[in-house]
């Protein structure tokens, strides 16, 4: 059986909020290393990969592999019944029909319990190769969100160009064009504001801003975001979570012009 207790329901609430507009029905794959999720959007352009390691829970118990097929809009309805600070316990039997979510108030005696019916989801699983990216940009997540929002007003696509000079987000649309260039920046007082560009070779790729803006819904989960690029491969946008856990988004590039 599965029994996983999170100190704060907020983490799962935010993760589900960040991905529910991109993917609808997902398997939460549970085993002794934690809870993982991989799902593609309907158009097979973007992929969500989440890993909540067992260390993120206390306690965590999962005796065998269990796939919890859950509709995210149903899960959202139930998670709305939890306060951010509630302790959240997820329970399921070995061959479950339902998953049980229990919310306990940390400062009162309230205890709420909900069951969500599970679905059989036959999902294609993609193998994501270990990649040494040509460029990795680490920047404040709100800054990335702002750039995506601002450029979305002008165009559907953004080109991301990394050179030793910095990273340039540029777009071209009907009303005109725009570009935001960032250089490496280190702020000792405010390390959350740091911008780091690790570059082994220059990269230039074009992506849909609609998807990038969607990924930015995860901005509340981490102060900084890693944007990993190599020519001719999908972009990786990664939000690091506590206990070595993560929420990653992959986006297939736009090709040819």
């Amino acid at each position: 059986m599965l029994e996983a207790r999170l100190e704060q329901a907020e983490l799962l609430k935010k993760v589900v909020d960040a991905i529910k507009d991109l993917v609808q029905d997902c398997n939460f794959d549970c085993n002794d290393s934690g809870v993982a999720l991989q799902a593609m959007d309907n158009s097979h352009v973007a992929l969500v990969s989440m890993m909540l390691k067992s260390e993120a829970f206390s306690p965590f118990r999962c005796d065998r592999n269990i796939a919890l097929g859950i509709n995210l809009s149903s899960l959202t309805k139930v998670l709305r019944c939890a306060q951010n600070n509630d302790i959240l316990t997820v329970k399921a039997e070995d061959a479950p029909d339902v998953v049980n979510l229990m919310f306990e108030s940390s400062d009162s005696d309230r205890l709420s319990e909900y069951d969500i019916k599970l679905m059989d989801i036959d999902q294609e699983h993609l193998g994501i190769p270990e990649t040494e990216y040509a460029a990795t940009v680490t920047m404040p997540s709100p800054e990335f969100q702002r750039i995506c929002r601002d450029l979305s007003a002008l165009s559907e696509s953004v080109s991301i160009e990394c050179t030793k000079e910095g990273v340039k987000f540029a777009c071209n649309g009907d009303i005109g064009s725009g570009a935001v260039t960032l250089r490496s920046h280190s702020d000792v007082e405010n390390p959350d504001q740091n911008i780091k560009i690790d570059l082994t070779e220059p990269v230039a790729l074009t992506f849909s801003l609609k998807y990038l803006s969607n990924f930015c819904k995860a901005s509340g989960l981490a102060k900084s975001v890693n944007i990993c690029l190599s020519n001719e491969v999908p972009l990786l946008v990664e939000y690091g979570l506590a206990a070595n856990s993560y929420l990653r988004f992959y986006l297939a590039p736009k090709i040819g012009d």
Binding site: L126, P234, K254, I255, D257
Partner: peptide
């Protein structure tokens, strides 16, 4: 203009 590619062109089903 640029065409949107799909993930299967890069990641193989397992």
């Amino acid at each position: 203009s640029a065409q949107q590619s799909r993930l299967e062109g890069f990641f193989k089903p397992v």
